[in-house]
Design a protein around this nucleic acid. Structure first.
Lengths: 127, 127
DNA sequence: CGGTATCCCGGGCGATACTG
DNA sequence: CAGTATCGCCCGGGATACCG
C-alpha cells in the first residue's frame, strides 16, 4: 500500500498513466458511430465534403464537420483546400487512418457474418 | 430511374434494405464506447456485475446495466443468474461475442501502435 | 448484490442563418 | 460549396431511492 503510493509518484508510472488516459481518450474519439462510418466511407479514395455527406447516410452537416475536425486533429484524415470558387475541399485517409480502416473492415465483416445470429437472438429475447 | 423504382419494389431489394438497416442498427449498438469496453473487459472469462463495474473504469450503474441488456439482447453475452442470496449474476461472452472481441483487440492494438503518431498530430494541430 | 424506477441537469445534436 | 455561429430542444446519463 505504502509501496504502491510511493511507486505511483515515480516518473515511469506517471508516464504510464498519461499514456493510458490518452489511449482512453483516443478510444472515446474513435469508438463512435459517425467517425467509424466516415472512415469507412473514405476508404482508399478521396471525397469532397458534399460527397461525404451523401455517402454517410443520415449524418448532419454539423456532425460531419465536427467529426472531420476531430479526425484531422488526430491525424487520421488529411484535409486539402483548393483555393478556387466555389471552394473545393477534399478529405483522404492518412496512413494511420488506413490502418484503422482495416480494423473497421473487420467489424463490418463481423456484422454481416453474424447478422442472422443476432436477428434470431433478438427475436428470442423480445419474447 | 423508372427501372430503379421498379426494382426497388422487388422482394429481393426489400430484403436487402432490411438487412442493411439491421446492419446499421447493430453497428450503432456496438460502435459505442461502453459496449466495447465491456466486451474487452469480459475477455475469455466470466465476471459478476460488481466485478465488471470495477473493471470498466468510470462506467455508471445505469450504463452498465443498459449496455449489458443490449448485448444480451443481441446474443453477444450470456447472463446466468444463480438463485442464492445475495444474488449472484455472471456474464460471459458467447461465440459471436468472442468473435467481436477479436476485432476489438485489433482496435486496441491500433490505438497503442499509433499513440505516438496521434499525440504529435494533436500537438501540431493545436498550434 | 443486482435490477428497476424516478428525477433532473448538461450537453449533444439538429435547424437555421450568415460569411467567403 | 464549405465553414462557423447561434439557438433551442431533447434525451443521454448521473444520482438517488427503493425492491427481491
Amino acid at each position: 500500500m505504502v509501496t504502491k503510493q510511493l511507486l505511483t509518484g515515480l516518473p515511469e508510472d506517471a508516464d504510464l498513466r498519461r499514456a493510458d488516459s490518452l489511449a482512453r481518450e483516443i478510444f472515446s474519439d474513435v469508438a463512435n458511430k459517425w467517425a467509424l462510418l466516415i472512415i469507412e466511407a473514405l476508404g482508399e479514395g478521396t471525397l469532397r465534403f458534399g460527397e461525404l455527406r451523401n455517402e454517410v447516410e443520415g449524418v448532419s452537416h454539423k456532425m460531419l464537420t465536427q467529426n472531420l475536425r476531430m479526425l484531422e486533429r488526430n491525424g487520421l484524415v488529411e484535409r486539402t483546400v483548393h483555393p478556387v470558387v466555389p471552394p473545393r475541399v477534399e478529405y483522404t485517409l492518412t496512413e494511420p487512418g488506413r490502418a484503422l480502416r482495416a480494423t473497421i473492415d473487420g467489424l463490418c465483416d463481423w456484422t454481416h457474418r453474424y447478422l442472422g445470429h443476432i436477428e434470431t437472438a433478438r427475436d428470442r429475447f423480445d419474447a
